[in-house]
Nucleic acid binder design. Structure first.
Length: 771
DNA sequence: GACGCAACTTAGAATGCTATAT
DNA sequence: ATATAGCATTCTAAGTTGCGTC
């Protein structure tokens, strides 16, 4: 017992050191006071209720009957697969294609003009939104200008007009471009799907873009060895000399290009915390020495004696210089970049030009693993064309390797989506060049993902009932699986594959939880059966949560932890393969991660329903949207480091709010004054003054409200990252439908990139969509 | 059924860019 | 005109899942 506690303490302090600051939000969510937290709670409590209800029905089984069950084969198979979900994958796909755009294709058959109409409507919507936004902007500018005019009595004549015209022109151009883009967009979601595993029929591209070769340092920038001041006593015969050796800047050492390049990698990172870490330094030094010539290796034996300061300074100067380039130079740079994008950034896939997501080969550098990664600092090697496999269509032109080089292989595999791949030297894993998120290949898969999650919605109740039953199974595996599933469903934990020790940072997910990652509390903060989670998950992000669970789960956990020590697996009979195999027997396509998608999306939908009122203004609606989004981000534990400038920017905003408040007070008194005068004198001119003052007050109030809303939003968002859930977990159709229902322009929710990624959803979703 | 590989999604940090405040 | 806050984009690490092999 004692030793277990000690170890637990150790583990915790270790984690606290790295991610302590990120904790507060999750902790407070249990006792939340504001709207967002309350509604999140209510969402959860509903879930809780349902599980509690079924647990009552399921009378507590006897634990002891479990014990003797050994590793003998599982007998779970008993329940018959649900007929509804045994449809073949292909069937599912076909059905989906028919279900969703079916209406449209049917209508298309009846009246071929419809798609055009729809496109028009779609366009005009956007135009309107855009137009409105532009108008507002223009108005703002005009306001500003009039103020200036009044102030300075300076007619801002021709120049202002000109710029206004220019703005107008730019606006028109923008809209035109947008229209064009819309016209050119590949509406793949209206097309038939390919059979089975075929991903494309034609694929042509230029191959990956390679980073520039290493440019050796100029002679004016040097590396020095034996930097730190050191006292050396030399005894010759009867005499002793005290020598000060290696005094700064030490010996100038001209490194071979290979060694120098790696030295530069390190020097460039000197301002980063990485370079202070022992593991990082050791790994770097070991790999650096491998790149040295024998002479260099025999000289340079201690990283502490290396002086990279000149190289570091040069790098900083370079960064600075780039920042200070003239407008023209920057423009030229940008154009050169664009040229590269134009040439390498696109491919031709089934007659459509598609953007490539990452067309650049990753440049060499020092490996930046997250958390306590045992391989951090290792040299990530330069990739040569000889390392790269090209994948393209048989009947397409093969990309040419850089002059004097050849590809490792050229293949024509249309069952995969990648254009090029290579094996990386740190973990030995394969890296791919694939399409952008707005491509057909990615979009279709995304759509499919949400369809599977929606399918789960229709059978999640029966699945929940089943795992609640399984909590009292005679089989240990089944019980462990049930508890794991309970966590995955209720807490949106990741599956948790086992990882090779020493190869990666020590992180876990559900199935790989160890006993030291949870603490059981019979009583805690007025709740019974509380499980305290504390572990590092993906990307070494800490998951800390205190969760009241149903009695049966709690009892099982106690049982699983019996006779185990820290380091032992909580679910020792379970792994992700087993879990997923079971899940896919319950519903085709069901895996652990579908629960995350499902729970994220359903939470968004519920929260949006709960939080937004039709009568709210747009700012309030957006706050509600963000809160709903935030509820999901908290559920999924999507965290970020609080922005460095957070406190400052918060203070700034507060100051602005205060200023506006004062202004409002002033406007109000002025209005009163004007009213008084108007009443007493009855002058119609004064009446219009009153109207103007009224408008001013109103405007002021609106702006104040907007800022206050913004402040609340930002405060609540301090350590929460909304982007990940928005991009990967929330069915975009929920958001699109909400926008339509609430008269919120889609641009307020999704930026350009996101609108491109979710073009399929924006196009096909009606206001009555339900996840 | 354990294992390892391949392919793909999900993730936060770093960097770049732009609108806005000063 | 310039600085900078904050959003957008890029980058690539770190997961999940399915499949073939033994």
């Amino acid at each position: 017992m004692g030793s277990e506690n000690d170890a637990k303490g150790d583990a915790k302090t270790k984690q606290k050191g790295t991610t302590l600051k990120r904790l507060s939000d999750r902790k407070s969510s249990a006792s939340g006071g504001d709207v967002m937290k309350n509604s999140l709670k209510s969402a959860k409590s509903k879930e809780k209720k349902s599980s509690a209800g079924s647990s009552k029905k399921v009378k507590t089984p006897e634990v002891e009957s479990l014990e003797p069950v050994s590793s003998s084969s599982d007998l779970v198979k008993s329940e018959p697969p649900d007929q509804d979900f045994t449809a073949k994958k292909k069937g599912l796909k076909r059905k989906r294609v028919k279900e969703e755009p079916a209406e449209e294709s049917a209508q298309l058959a009846v009246s071929s003009t419809l798609p055009v109409q729809r496109r028009k409507r779609h366009l005009s919507d956007e135009e309107e939104d855009e137009g409105e936004a532009e108008k507002r902007k223009a108005q703002k500018k005009r306001e500003k200008k009039t103020v200036k005019k009044e102030e300075a009595e300076h007619p801002v004549s021709k120049r202002a007009k000109k710029t206004r015209e220019e703005i107008e022109e730019a606006r028109r151009l923008k809209i035109k471009k947008k229209e064009e883009e819309e016209q050119n967009r590949w509406r793949w979601w209206e097309e038939e799907k390919y059979e089975d595993g075929v991903k494309w029929k034609f694929l042509e591209h230029k191959g990956p873009y390679f980073p520039p070769e290493y440019q050796p340092l100029p002679d004016s920038v040097n590396f020095f060895y034996k930097g730190p001041l050191r006292a050396v006593i030399i005894i010759t015969g009867q005499r002793a000399f005290l020598l000060l050796r290696g005094c700064r800047p030490g010996e100038k050492v001209k490194l071979s290009p290979a060694a120098e390049e790696v030295a530069v990698f390190f020097a460039q990172m000197l301002d980063h915390e990485y370079t202070t870490k022992k593991v990082f330094r050791e790994n770097f030094f070991k790999d650096w020495r491998k790149e040295m010539t024998p002479d260099e290796r025999s000289l340079i034996k201690d990283l502490e004696k290396c002086d990279f300061s000149e190289i570091h300074a040069m790098h900083k100067a370079k960064v600075e210089a780039r920042k200070n380039l003239s407008k023209e130079e920057k423009q030229a740079l940008k154009e050169a970049n664009q040229k590269i994008v134009d040439e390498y950034g696109y491919c031709l896939l089934d007659h459509h030009r598609e953007r490539i997501g990452n067309f650049k080969i990753e440049p060499p550098g020092l490996f930046r693993g997250r958390g306590e990664h045992p391989k951090q600092g290792m040299l990530k090697k330069r990739i040569q064309p000889e390392d790269v496999i090209i994948n393209c269509g048989k009947d397409s032109s093969t990309p040419l390797p850089p002059a004097g080089h050849h590809w490792k292989e050229v293949r024509h595999d249309n069952t995969v989506t990648w254009l090029a791949s290579w094996t990386e030297n740190i973990q030995g894993s394969i890296k791919y060049i694939m399409l952008n998120a707005n491509s057909k290949l990615k979009g279709e898969k995304d759509w499919e993902k949400y369809e599977v999650a929606r399918k789960l919605k229709s059978c999640v109740e029966s699945i929940r009932n089943e795992y609640l039953q399984d909590l009292r199974s005679r089989q240990m595996v089944t019980r462990q699986r049930a508890v794991a599933l309970y966590f995955i469903d209720k807490l949106a934990l990741r599956a948790g594959n086992e990882k090779e020790e020493g190869e990666t940072a020590d992180t876990v997910g559900c199935c790989s939880l160890r006993v030291e990652h949870i603490t059981l509390h019979e009583q805690l903060d007025g709740n019974e059966c509380v499980v305290e989670f504390d572990f590092l998950g993906k990307d070494s992000i800490r998951y800390y949560n205190k969760v009241p669970v149903i009695k049966k789960v709690f009892k099982n956990l106690k049982l699983f932890m019996e006779n185990k020590e820290p380091g032992d697996e909580l679910f020792d009979r379970l792994n992700t393969a087993l879990l997923n195999k079971h899940l896919s027997s319950l519903m085709p396509g069901l895996t652990a991660k579908v629960f995350r998608t499902y729970n994220a999306s359903i939470t968004l939908q519920q929260q949006l329903k709960e939080l937004t009122n039709k009568s709210d203004n747009v700012a309030e609606k957006l706050l509600s949207y963000n809160r709903a989004n935030r509820a999901v981000a908290i559920l999924c534990n999507h965290q970020r480091a609080a922005p460095k400038t957070f406190e400052q920017s918060m203070a700034n905003l507060q100051a602005k709010i205060d200023a506006r408040k004062e202004q409002l007070a002033l406007a109000k008194t002025e209005l009163k004054q004007a009213k008084k005068e108007a009443k007493s004198k009855g002058d119609p001119k004064l009446q219009s003054l009153v109207e103007r003052k009224k408008a001013a007050v109103k405007r002021c109030e609106e702006q104040l409200l907007k800022m206050e809303v913004q402040a609340t939003d930002r405060e609540e968002n301090k350590q929460i990252a909304l982007g990940t859930s928005k991009l990967n977990y929330l069915d975009p159709r929920i958001s699109v439908a909400w926008c339509k229902n609430m008269d919120v322009p889609i641009e307020k929710i999704y930026n350009k990139t996101q609108r491109e990624k979710f073009a399929w959803a924006i196009d096909m979703t009606e206001a009555d969509f339900e996840f």
